[in-house]
Design a protein around this nucleic acid. Sequence first.
DNA 1: CTGAAAGCGCTTACAG
DNA 2: CTGAAAGCGCTTACAG
Lengths: 338, 338
Amino acid sequence: MAKRLSIRDIANELQISKTTISFILNGKAKEKRISDELAEKVMKHVAQRAYKPNQLAKSLSTGKTMMIGLMVENISDYFFAQVAYHIEELAYQHGYRIIYCSTDNDLHKTQELISMFRERHVDGYIITAPAGLEKDVQGLLDDGLPVVLFDRYLKGVDTSYVILDNYKASYDATKYLTDQGFENIAFVELDSDQSQMHDRREGYLQAVADAHLAPLIKKIPFTSDFDQKVKELVKFIRKSEDVDAIFFATNYLAFSGIKALNQLKMHTPQDVAIVAFDDHEVFNIYSPTVTAVAQPIKKLAQQSINALLKMLDAKDGTQTLEKIEVAAELIIRDSTKV
Amino acid sequence: MAKRLSIRDIANELQISKTTISFILNGKAKEKRISDELAEKVMKHVAQRAYKPNQLAKSLSTGKTMMIGLMVENISDYFFAQVAYHIEELAYQHGYRIIYCSTDNDLHKTQELISMFRERHVDGYIITAPAGLEKDVQGLLDDGLPVVLFDRYLKGVDTSYVILDNYKASYDATKYLTDQGFENIAFVELDSDQSQMHDRREGYLQAVADAHLAPLIKKIPFTSDFDQKVKELVKFIRKSEDVDAIFFATNYLAFSGIKALNQLKMHTPQDVAIVAFDDHEVFNIYSPTVTAVAQPIKKLAQQSINALLKMLDAKDGTQTLEKIEVAAELIIRDSTKV
DNA sequence: CTGAAAGCGCTTACAG
DNA sequence: CTGAAAGCGCTTACAG
């Protein structure tokens, strides 16, 4: 293994001190009043020798790693994978690298991952928090580590967050259904205790109430697998004969629902209309195409990384928190045509 | 920001040397013949003070970071996201952390990412290589850095790889179609120059030839977006009237094809049967469900990380390379029913 | 303008 | 069995 060049090698080759080279490499030539010629000479030589500073050593002495820890619920989920992709891209442009992981929405696993990220000294965090993570996030903040909550916030934790305006998005989608004349709109959700689920349910309830209709909520166990969800939904749909529209709180639930409807030989939108929260590329492929509440993924990614960069740039004490609720977009397709 | 504990703090608190503590923490207590009592006392104190060694410092002095660089084509793609998820899990169990990135199959971007990973001193690499990366991978190997090629190999680069047996998988799927009595089987692929595309095409060609049928290949530009692909396929299908089955070389192509068939109001499998390379959860949801060549994702992930760990463990000189071709599984569903 | 020196927090060869 | 010391490759306060 070829020995890597160190700053000392460069210093020796050029017969000047490491200090001077370090200053030049870190853009402090002007500030330290180093002559332009010298700076240029060094830069040229460094480029020619293809010298790359050792980031490990740099991090050890500066305390910054230029790494951001991104904890999503599951990196293999379409929504999170997309978000991760964009965040990676944007972070990269600002000199930051991303290190991801999947929390599986498991509190214990997430706590372990945080402690691993701390050991690795990541500079900042973007987290889709499972319920119960309040103390751990507060712990990070107390130690001066910036955290941006993503997709859901944590009550009582005062830090930046970027979430969808779930309440309004859900309200609007439901109202769209009532406006279309649907009268028995069911809401299918996960029995999880997260802020976004809660807000989606509330939006639905309000819109139904505003239209003087009766709500009907079906909760599916969070831990059930795909086939179990389908089974649950088949049962539910079968016994809810008068339901004329179903609003699924996530796209995965919608997939289970579509499968269930297929099994029941029911047709969309003739027998029952459907709307899904969270768009998915597939919704636009099969017919009927599926009406969906689309999260503006790029925008969410952008806002998150921006919020974090702002905290990262802030000198101690001047923290500016950003609490952002991004508006969703209702994409109307064939599954709700009347 | 609370000052973190260092090994020196622990040493002071316990009135023994850093050396001893370091030995104990690294499981060398026995080897260094440190008394059990002392070792236990230290461990207890470390646990109680919640001392975590600084990985940065550790890495700087050992030269190991316990990080693996995982470069996939696109982390937001279903297949790669799944693989990444499993690799992360397995690596974690062996004390390694994963740092991912997406190459977008772009040579230049990939080269940059490699150089970024080198700066970060990752211990090993798992790479889905874009065409033309031969020299860069060889460069890593020359510097003693282990590389496992994933999903596709690179001709002339002698290192471990884990790929699907694309040729056989493709041959078998095509043979299944000919056995079913289909006589005009088209093969839709991307015009990219990667080993796996090449092997899939060859498998198809051989199976068609073996059945004394004529091949029909349609190449779609790699850079086209979804709608462009659909358009191309609509044109292609319209003018290829006698085609009775289409074999798509990737699941994304299959999605475009399904959309195209929908636009043409053609029915599957009555008008034309379809098979997709790479299974997708959605293939089992909509009807007709889609026959697919499934990559055993978990197995691929497992083999890859194993191959890498083997190289990582090897003392210099005793490298054991693994060149693994994993068998695919043909999952027969409704889209090819006769 | 420039350099010698201390320090970041570990590991480990060496000496006893 | 245990410790003082050098070293990993940077940065930066300090001195000139």
